[in-house]
Design a binder for these strands. Sequence first.
DNA 1: ACACAAATGCAACTTTGTTGCAAAATAAAT
DNA 2: ATTTATTTTGCAACAAAGTTGCATTTGTGT
Lengths: 138, 138
Amino acid sequence: MHPRIIDTLKRRQLSITDSRKKILELFLERKAALAHADIEQHSGDEFDRVTIYRTLQTFVEKGILHTIPSADNSVKYALCKDACTEGHHHDNHVHFMCDACGITYCLDHVTVPAVQLPPGYQVHQLDLVASGTCIKCQ
Amino acid sequence: MHPRIIDTLKRRQLSITDSRKKILELFLERKAALAHADIEQHSGDEFDRVTIYRTLQTFVEKGILHTIPSADNSVKYALCKDACTEGHHHDNHVHFMCDACGITYCLDHVTVPAVQLPPGYQVHQLDLVASGTCIKCQ
DNA sequence: ACACAAATGCAACTTTGTTGCAAAATAAAT
DNA sequence: ATTTATTTTGCAACAAAGTTGCATTTGTGT
Ligand SMILES: [Mn+2]
Ligand SMILES: [Mn+2]
Ligand SMILES: [Zn+2]
Ligand SMILES: [Zn+2]
């Protein structure tokens, strides 16, 4: 088991359960974003569908995962950096979705540029999603 | 009926049907983006749910509507500019979702800034979605 | 007015997401 | 280490969202 798992859960005062450990491990070993359906597939019938929904929701609330918007009605989830805490996310990096292999990457080192909006719009969050062909699919 | 409706459909060689006229009119009179559910509500039981799905899909394919990504599993649709044609969208503007009123706006005059991605990533599309408080909800 | 092609409505179905509650697992207290 | 309290899980039942095939209707071109 990945050494960060217990620590990550404890720091958020979450009980250490099998499903949480396993789902967190999935995210730690794959580097890419995962959708609910991906997790359901990779965990077989180890947990109930409902447990996966609730675990993802908890992880987002506690700052362990962040969501990635998409135009195809399939929200993906990816690991946050340590800076994120309960209710305070700082995932201001660009995301990349590959049209060929379907993988979604967090480009942690590419920050979202500031944009000048018309006066009167107060921005709380900026999401920039790029799509195209990833480095493996060229 | 809005004067642009017939023209818009004919230019894409689409048959002029009641549902297409009505759905297109909805988008033309409201300036904001609409989700499938919004259209279903505003059209009562005038058309079948399936017809709305198929109409939206056709409109996206033909360059009449574009989709707007979101992090809450609810795809919204908005009118394209005339530049968009079948299979070739040019909707490179910023979108704004208001947390208060829920309205999603196309900021047609705010273009998405270029970003420098790591080498090997070939970008086909860039989507920038801002969220916060809109001008009416301040 | 007619023939052909395209779009619609309906039904049946699949997939996705939600909720309440009893049972099981985890954490805290003794 | 046991017991108690709290939290999480699985199940069932449900609601919402999206898909597909096919007969009927509507629209288009002659
Ligand atoms: Mn990310
Ligand atoms: Mn737009
Ligand atoms: Zn790829
Ligand atoms: Zn608003």
